[in-house]
Amino acid sequence: MRVIITGGHGFLGWHTAARLRALHEMEVVRLGRAEFADPDGLVQHIRRADVVLHLAGVNRAASDEEVRAGNVALATQLAAALVAASKPVRVVYANSIQARGKSPYGCGKAEAGDLIRAATAAAGGSLADVILPNLFGEHGRPEYNSFVATFCHLIANDGAPSIIQDIEVPLLHAQAAAEVLLSAMIGDQDVVIEPTGEPRSVSEILDQIRGFHNVYRNGDIPALPDSFSVDLFNTYRSYTFPEQFPRFATVHADARGELFETVRSHGGKGQSFVSVTRPGYTRGEHYHLRKIERFYVVRGAAEISLRRLLHDEVIRFTVSDDRPGYIDMPTMWVHNLTNVGNNDLVTIFWTDQLLDPDDPDQYPDRVVQETRA
């Protein structure tokens, strides 16, 4: 199956492409502004596709009218390409609950839905209209994607967010939204799908993120009693990386030797294990969608390398027993650990969940990608 994702380099587009890479064997083509600027090229992309996920949209702009018109313009371009391609494809539209309201964004999403629905029918295809609540997740753009992104960014950097209106908001993590969108690809009938979000007040979210910050700034893992808390914590800590790592231990030394803490978890379950890595060898080369994982170097010297999924830049840290330190692996970042010293490397690993062989949340990939000729 060949899948097109419009807005594939944006917040929801990246999360959806990351989930496809982890869980499905499909060819994925991510389209952005450059592809929309080429109408003939857009038609050719659709002719080669089985499914179109329309996730492109405009959340913020210089004026309300630009927000409305931006969403309509994107849908108009896609609709024209669907009709010109004259191929019956499955279209999944990332709509919004705001389409039922009168805000500029909501009006734009509603108009866009009408255009895509008509074009899909004209081409003989089918439409899954997915009405999403407010989304949050790792690497959302502050002041653009959601108030959660803004709060996390400010708090992680010791800022002081303010509440404009303390209302209850239904919130859905971007990976959960992506799961719904991918499920909607299957079928040949027009459907309307409306996943529910977790109802939370704005002040409740702000208090929870501040609580995470107060605990995590000292290296501790906060209490994470449910999956929503885990998702929100993973979102918050994505704004601490890579600038706030590595972090270093307070070492207590006397004639007997040294002692330092590696993990303090404020509730929940977890698992620790130790590895010995020979000089020159590498461990890892995988990523996680939801797991919290800490690498703590206690003996030897390690180079820890990470690459955000579907990106090219590699970030490298060197940590050694000269100053015992740790790095927490962000979700959806490919990572590895290499012994760059002359002696055995001793590393303590900690994860927030017990290993489930049937659902290990571990997906193979390489930090350094092969160079294509």
Rank of each mutant, 00 (worst) to 15 (best):
I209Q: 01
S183Q: 14
F248S: 00
D254W: 03
G268C: 08
A253G: 02
H266R: 09
E194Q: 12
S272C: 11
Q271C: 10
G267L: 02
V169T: 08
S183C: 13
N218P: 01
N218Q: 15
D190W: 07
I155F: 08
V215P: 00
S203V: 11
R256F: 01
P242L: 08
G211I: 12
A249S: 10
R200S: 04
V169H: 00
L172E: 10
Q175K: 07
E194K: 06
A178H: 03
Q175W: 09
D231L: 03
Y239L: 02
M185F: 14
R217G: 03
K269D: 15
V251W: 10
A174G: 03
P199S: 06
Y236S: 02
I193K: 09
H153D: 12
R217I: 14
F228A: 01
V148P: 00
L154F: 00
T235R: 01
P170K: 02
E179H: 08
H266F: 14
P142N: 04
R217D: 10
H213W: 09
F245M: 03
I164E: 15
L206K: 07
V263C: 03
E198A: 11
D158R: 13
Q165F: 10
T240Y: 06
E179T: 14
R217H: 10
S238K: 06
N157G: 08
F151D: 01
D254V: 07
I193M: 13
S201N: 11
A174E: 02
V192A: 13
D188S: 15
A176K: 12
A160R: 11
F241P: 04
A178N: 02
T150I: 13
A176L: 12
I186N: 03
H252K: 10
E243Y: 09
S229E: 10
P199Y: 05
A174L: 04
F212A: 02
P195T: 06
I164N: 11
E243C: 05
G257Q: 08
S238P: 09
V230M: 12
P199N: 05
Y236I: 08
K269V: 15
N234Q: 07
T196E: 15
S162G: 13
G257K: 04
G267V: 06
V148D: 00
I167N: 10
A177L: 09
F248W: 00
V192H: 07
A160P: 04
V191C: 07
